[in-house]
């Protein structure tokens, strides 16, 4: 571990620790570093992913507000210091791995939708998210239709009818609607060394 490799998180100890904590091999962690480098240098080249950089990658523009992007960023940012570091990036992407258990994916989405972090997904939160997606996609819905969609959703998901969805109710709901977790699996992650083969020029180890 030279000071330079420590700085760039490329030292073998760091890489193998990350591999042991996640579903990635050491070479796959190195390949993810290639993606991380690209994202973290797109606006400010400081080895950290800022919200604007994630926004630029996902929405093709660093400007404007997107509720869902904010939530994704906050969940990636484990240390809650306003930036995504490499270890946080690898930890979060591990949940998106095709081999990650559905329960982990379901928990991640639950946290994502639990906007106020109360341990429940409340009707008001769902309404806020539906309004946000309508604005994002330039769709218009009457208030009546919006309430009808919320009624239908809660009739299906909120089995104890207390006006909010608990984690247990959410698990049952996603098991009935597995397509809701579709975004949570990134097939690219199974072949990440093929997607970013340039890791080979910097590798510290042969898996």
């Amino acid at each position: 571990c030279s000071p330079e490799s420590q700085k760039r998180l490329r030292c073998y100890d760091n890489l193998s620790l990350l591999a042991s904590e996640t579903r990635f091999s050491v070479n796959e962690v190195e390949a993810l570093y290639e993606l991380f480098k690209k994202l973290s240098s797109s606006i400010i080249d400081d080895g950290l992913i800022h919200k604007e950089e994630l926004q630029l990658a996902l929405l093709r523009s660093p400007y404007g507000e997107n509720l869902f992007l904010d939530r994704v960023f906050d969940l990636f940012d484990e240390k809650r210091n306003g930036v995504i570091e490499f270890d946080e990036f690898v930890h979060a992407l591990s949940i998106f791995h095709p081999h990650a258990p559905m329960e982990e994916k379901s928990d991640f989405v639950f946290k994502l939708y639990d906007l106020r972090q109360t341990g429940f997904i409340e009707r008001e939160e769902v309404k806020q998210m539906v309004i946000a997606i309508l604005m994002e996609s330039d769709m218009r819905l009457s208030d009546e239709l919006l309430e009808a969609i919320l009624d239908k959703t809660f009739a299906d998901a909120d089995t104890d009818m207390d006006g909010r969805i608990s984690k247990e109710e959410w698990k049952v709901f996603v098991s009935k609607h597995p397509s809701l977790l579709k975004n949570m699996t990134l097939p690219y992650l199974k072949d990440i060394t093929t997607v970013f083969p340039s890791f080979i020029f910097n590798t510290e180890v042969e898996d």
Binding site: F96, L112, Y113, I149, A157, L186
Partner: peptide
């Protein structure tokens, strides 16, 4: 599917902010 038959989470899951596959596009 039309919004009437959709549940709210189906709509929400279509946000581009949630589509991390975009990160891997060259």
């Amino acid at each position: 599917a039309s919004p009437v038959t959709m549940n709210a989470f189906e709509l929400i899951s279509k946000s581009r902010g949630l589509d991390l596959a975009t990160l891997f596009e060259k």
